[in-house]
Design a protein around this nucleic acid. Structure first.
Lengths: 344, 344
DNA sequence: ATTAGCACTCATAAAAGACGAGTGCTAATA
DNA sequence: TATTAGCACTCGTCTTTTATGAGTGCTAAT
């Protein structure tokens, strides 16, 4: 098997892909003959196309139709393109974070903006915080039988928990408990809190040991990584723009995948797990980790905020996706967010 | 115009609706003739059907087809049905609420459960809290320049806000501020906090008046009713089960409506605004307040938790929806949630 | 008041035909 | 040897035609 395609074949492949992206129709030899600057007759193109098909880069939907790019073809094309743009991708670092709920708004808007601009379905995951270390605990008396526990982890991730008390506690006791909790737990990560420590604390808390248990539970929940990270989607209905995705069966599955989000979560997790991956990633057709999306391509971009908080932006469309444009758009977006962040 | 349909016409109309709900096909006179226990020939049925059509309860998709129920027909049917079930609806009160994030999980599950059981699209809104009165404020020093403000409103709605300080504050100052804030603001609603009060507080805070401003902002946000209430959807893809909704145009619009949620928010608001409405409400076809859903029917149920926190569950399907089953399911669900809540 | 009977309508499905884009192959050409 | 013109052939798609049959409205008989 020949490693590299000869230049002419490459040009023809590119022409096929370009044309197919535009029209969505299988492209024939005659079209290519005129489309390119190669000045070759359709017959010659036909021969080359036969070769390309044998090599697996393009395929024929049926006997008397033109050719369409195969996953392998797209892959070659994308790899080629990315190589050129790799340098620019470096600048995709740093971004905006502020109040938790403002953030949510922003993410939703970004997803929407992206969907409108690209005409594909989009998703964006809230940054995954490490938040492993405990920073601050505070118990406050709300009323006779209610205690509010505020737990802050590193990265300013805040969790509130309302605790129901059996008996009423006086202010002094609460103060003592606060000191106790902070003294023992401050700066610790989930793994570092062991049973010995807990029982020591309970002993010191005396008759209020049950409260310690409850608070520890709250702490544990605050510290552990979110099992399901927040994901926002937009433009799901864009799949109707692409006939190859829009038949009932497929559309229904896709819509469901977007709504359930569970699958998307795994995609995000996978993307983020690869610590080395700092830029843009492209999954084509069968490559996608989500079965229901085997007829789609997914382009993801990993963004990174201060303190190692990372999230993922994804664009989902048909395999005949305008990779060029999508990658560019993502890069621009990253850049904009970057400047926005640096400005303040 | 005759107010009431004669009993036979009523029976025929019901038969038409039942049959249409099952098959989704226009139903003809011959079918009805055998379907009912009226023992009438198809010819007689035809005459009656002609009458029903003239009265607007049914209509003919085209000349040589059977009849399908019109919105008006469904409306009559539903009203009739509801009259019978009205008494049972009384028991739809009281429900579960607990930790904020557990709640979220529960709501999502309820939506999903409902979608799976009914084969319609579902939505559920998180209970809208009044949370107008302030209950508790606490400032805590996180580090040199960061202050955590925890604001609790009635109904245990908690808001956290991280404040950036210009200068470092010592513990004593923070304590003073805490006392100051609680003394002045406790028990107040948004309307009761006026400029005079704020300036008094600022004066008392002395050089730290700017912090007071920031805290007041945080308080305001915590107190004011959520402008966009949380809504969870499930089973959107169920619309593909119903050919009358599944064509590209309509499906796309519907999917979008579900994803954007903005419209749903308004529906919920409208449903909740009607304080008197305590039970189940049915919107048929053009009656729905959402234009994109004019080919759908929506059945909503208002649930109420303690302290007047109310939310809405909605089921969205084609106008030929199995109203009977949907209403029953909703009632059962409410009942279950009710017992679940009472048990603890 | 009900019903049998019949001519008529019209959506839907199946069959038949026309079209044409596109191919593979062969033979001629540079 | 690489390229190209030419041609027969394939096969999806679109259009037309032709059943088919469910369902109706109307009339006349019971």
């Amino acid at each position: 098997m020949e490693m590299q395609l000869d230049e002419r074949k490459m040009k023809i492949l590119q022409a096929i892909i370009h044309n197919y992206l535009e029209t969505g129709e299988p492209v024939g030899s005659r079209t290519i003959s005129k489309y390119t600057d190669l000045n070759l007759s359709s017959a010659t193109i036909r021969n080359e196309m036969a070769d390309l098909e044998e090599l697996g880069y393009i395929l024929q939907p049926h006997t008397s139709a033109g050719r369409i790019p195969s996953d392998k073809g797209y892959r070659l094309y994308v790899d080629d393109m990315m190589q050129v743009k790799e340098k620019e991708v470096e600048e995709i670092k740093g971004m905006l974070l502020e109040k938790q709920d403002r953030m949510e708004q922003l993410l939703k808007q970004v997803a929407k903006l992206l969907a409108v601009n690209t005409n594909y379905a989009t998703m964006i995951s809230a940054p995954q915080t490490r938040k492993n270390k405990l920073k601050f605990i505070q118990l406050s008396k709300m009323d006779a039988r209610q205690l509010l526990a505020v737990v802050v982890a590193e990265g300013n991730v805040i969790k509130n928990n309302m605790l129901q008390m059996e008996e009423e506690l006086d202010d002094e006791t609460i103060l003592k408990l606060n000191i106790l909790l902070n003294t023992y737990l401050n700066g610790l990560s989930a793994e570092e809190i062991n049973l010995g420590m807990i029982s020591t604390m309970k002993r010191q808390a005396g008759i209020h040991s049950d409260i310690v248990s409850e608070v520890i539970d709250a702490v544990a929940e605050a510290i552990k990584a979110d099992e399901d990270l927040e994901i926002y989607t937009s433009g799901t209905n864009n799949i109707f723009r692409y006939p190859e995705l829009a038949d009932h069966q497929k559309a229904s599955e896709l819509i469901n995948t977007f709504e359930e989000k569970q699958m998307l979560t795994e995609l995000v997790r996978e993307t983020l797990a690869d610590e080395s991956n700092t830029g843009i990633q492209v999954y084509i057709g069968e490559e996608t980790p989500i079965k229901t999306m085997k007829d789609c391509s997914i382009v993801t971009a990993t963004y990174e905020l201060e303190e190692g908080m990372r999230g993922t932006i994804g664009i989902i469309g048909p395999t005949r996706m305008d990779y060029d444009k999508v990658v560019d758009t993502l890069k621009t977006l990253m850049h904009q967010l970057d400047t926005l962040y640096k400005k303040r």
